[in-house]
Design a protein around this nucleic acid. Structure first.
Length: 430
RNA sequence: GGCCCCAUCGUCUAGGCAGGCCUAGGACACCGGGUUUUCAACCCGGCAACAGGGGUUCGAAUCCCCUUGGGGCUACCA
C-alpha cells in the first residue's frame, strides 16, 4: 500500500507513477491545498483467480484490475476497503452476495491477502441476480418508472390535483414527468393511489401491504436461484432451513414471477396455523389502515375462516370490508350495478328478497339459505340470479363473503336498510 | 466499448460436475372439462423445452470450441 497525491483533475484514466509519493509529497500537497486520496497498488503482473463456491474458478487477466482508491479525499475509506476490513474484524468466513459484486471480488481478495496474509480468505459465493419482468435486475426505481408511464398514458389527468395528492409542487411534478428528478417514495405512493394505478411491489413492505405473508416471501425468494434438489417447493421455513445448502445455488439469473408468488401465497395461507394467520391479518389491517382493524379476534377469525382459498390477505380484507362500512356509505361498483341490478329483473328480485327477509323473525344461515334457494326454485332460476342482486345491495360489489354468512353477519336491520337504499337509488334508472 | 457471469417448457427449475437409466421430471401460468351463491379454492385432462453450429465419443441435454442471446460490473456510492 502506498500513498500518493493525486493530480487535480482525476477524470483521465489513472496511471501509476514511476515513483510512489512519500510523506514529504503528502505534506507538500496538503500545504498547497490539493486533495489527497490513497490508492491500493494492485499487482499488475499476474492474473487474479477467485474461487467461487457457485461458479468455480474465475480469472481476471493481469493488469485488469487497476489501482483503486481506498481512502477518499474526505478521509473516509471507500466501500471496497471498508468491507474487507469489516469482514476481517467480524471474522467473516463466507461472503454470499449477488453476482453484481463479482467484479469487486478480485480487488477485495488481493487487498485481503496483503492486509491479512495469515488469515485464510473468506469463501466467496456469488448468487445469480433476480431479473424483473421489465428487463433489468429488480430495482426500486421501477415504481417511479411505472408511475411516470401511467401519467404519460393517453388520458386526461388533472396534474394540479395529482401534485396536490402527492404533496409536491407542480414544478416538481413536471420535473418528475420529464424524467429529471424523482420524488420520495411516500409521494410516489400517494400519487399512485390518487390515480388508482398499481405499482409493482419491490420493497418487502410493498408485498406486505399487498397481503403477502412473510412465510411466502421467505419460501419464494429462497427458491429463486436455489432448490432442494427434489420436487419440494412450498415449504415451512423450518423445512426450508433444513434443506438449504450452498452447493445447490444455481448459476443462471432468475426472473421474478409474480403469478407464481401468488400461488405460493395461496398455499401458505392454507398451510399456516389459524393463530399465525390471525396475527398476520391483524398487522396487515393496521398497516393499510383498514376499518376492519376495529374488529375483535373472534370476528376476524370467523372472517378468515369464511375466506378459505383466498390468495392474499388483501382479498380477505376486500371481501369483508362491507361489514364495517356505514349503511349509507356503500360504494357501488358500476359494473356490478349494471350487470346484476339494472339488467333483467335484478331490482324486482331484490324487492321480493327484501320482503321475505323482513318476514323472517330470526336470521340464521340455514333460514337465509332455505329462503333464497326456495325463491330460486320458485322462479326456476339458478341461485346466482337471486343471490347476486342481494350481494350487490349489501356490499356494492359482486365479490364478498359467502352470501348467507354475509347477511347473517350484517344483521337483519342493516341488510334491510341497505336493500332499501339500493332500491331507492337505482329504481329510477331502469 | 472493456471485463465478468449465464443459457432445459411462456416462467421457476430437476437432470449436467462422475456422458447411456431422459420417448427430459415437477411447479406456476395457459387451454379444455367438472364443481359452484360471487371471487377464490378444489377435482380431472391437455399443450409445452435441451438457443444455433461445429467437434470429442460406440453414444451428449450432459464434455470442448465458436456464434447468438440474456444479465452484471465499469464512481473519491455502498
Amino acid at each position: 500500500m502506498r500513498k500518493e497525491a493525486e493530480g487535480r483533475k482525476g477524470n483521465l484514466d489513472y496511471v501509476r507513477p514511476e515513483i510512489f509519493p512519500d510523506e514529504n509529497d503528502v505534506k507538500k500537497a496538503t500545504e498547497q491545498g490539493k486533495p489527497i486520496t490513497v490508492r491500493f497498488a494492485v499487482p499488475q503482473t499476474e492474473q487474479i483467480v477467485v474461487q467461487d463456491m457457485v461458479r468455480g474458478e474465475i480469472s481476471f487477466a493481469a493488469g485488469e484490475i487497476g489501482d483503486f482508491i481506498i481512502l477518499k479525499s474526505d478521509g473516509f475509506p471507500t466501500y471496497n476497503f471498508a468491507c474487507v476490513v469489516d469482514d476481517y474484524l467480524m471474522k467473516i468466513t463466507h461472503i454470499i452476495r449477488g453476482q453484481e459484486h463479482l467484479n469487486n471480488t478480485p480487488g477485495q481478495q488481493v487487498l485481503w491477502q496483503t492486509l491479512f496474509p495469515d488469515i485464510p480468505l473468506p469463501k466467496y459465493a456469488h448468487m445469480s441476480v433476480t431479473i424483473s419482468d421489465t428487463g433489468g435486475k429488480l430495482s426500486k426505481r421501477e415504481r417511479p418508472t411505472a408511475l411516470r408511464k401511467a401519467i404519460k398514458a393517453p388520458q386526461e389527468i388533472d396534474l394540479e390535483a395529482l401534485a396536490a395528492a402527492g404533496d409536491i409542487g407542480r414544478d416538481e411534478l413536471d420535473s418528475f414527468i420529464s424524467g429529471k428528478t424523482t420524488p420520495d417514495m411516500p409521494n410516489i405512493d400517494a400519487m399512485a393511489k390518487h390515480l388508482d394505478v398499481a405499482l409493482p411491489e419491490i420493497n418487502i413492505v410493498d408485498f406486505f401491504k399487498n397481503g403477502y405473508l412473510p412465510e411466502t416471501m421467505v419460501n419464494f425468494l429462497a427458491l429463486l436461484g436455489w432448490n432442494p434438489g427434489d420436487n419440494r417447493e412450498i415449504m415451512p421455513v423450518e423445512e426450508l432451513t433444513k434443506a438449504f445448502d450452498l452447493s445447490r445455488l444455481s448459476k443462471s439469473n432468475s426472473l421474478f414471477d409474480r403469478q407464481k408468488l401468488l400461488a405460493f401465497n395461496t398455499e401458505h395461507i392454507k398451510m399456516i396455523s389459524a393463530e399465525k394467520l390471525l396475527l398476520h391479518f391483524k398487522s396487515y389491517l393496521k398497516a393499510i389502515v383498514s376499518p376492519i382493524a376495529s374488529a375483535d379476534d373472534e370476528l376476524l377469525s370467523i372472517i378468515i375462516k369464511l375466506c378459505e382459498g383466498a390468495r392474499t390477505l388483501a382479498q380477505i380484507e376486500q371481501k369483508s370490508e362491507f361489514l364495517f362500512v356505514d349503511n349509507d356509505k356503500i360504494k357501488f361498483d358500476d359494473k356490478a350495478v349494471k350487470k346484476v341490478l339494472l339488467k333483467s329483473d335484478g331490482l324486482a328480485i331484490l324487492a321480493i328478497v327484501r320482503e321475505k327477509l323482513a318476514a323472517m323473525n330470526e336470521l340464521t344461515e340455514q333460514g337465509i339459505e332455505d329462503m333464497l334457494r326456495g325463491l330460486a326454485e320458485e322462479k326456476q332460476v339458478g341461485l346466482g340470479k337471486i343471490a347476486q342482486p342481494l350481494r350487490v345491495a349489501i356490499c356494492g360489489t359482486t365479490i364478498s363473503l359467502p352470501i348467507f354468512d354475509s347477511v347473517r353477519l350484517l344483521g337483519k336491520e342493516n341488510t334491510l336498510k341497505r336493500i332499501d337504499n339500493t332500491l331507492k337509488k337505482f329504481q329510477t334508472q331502469t
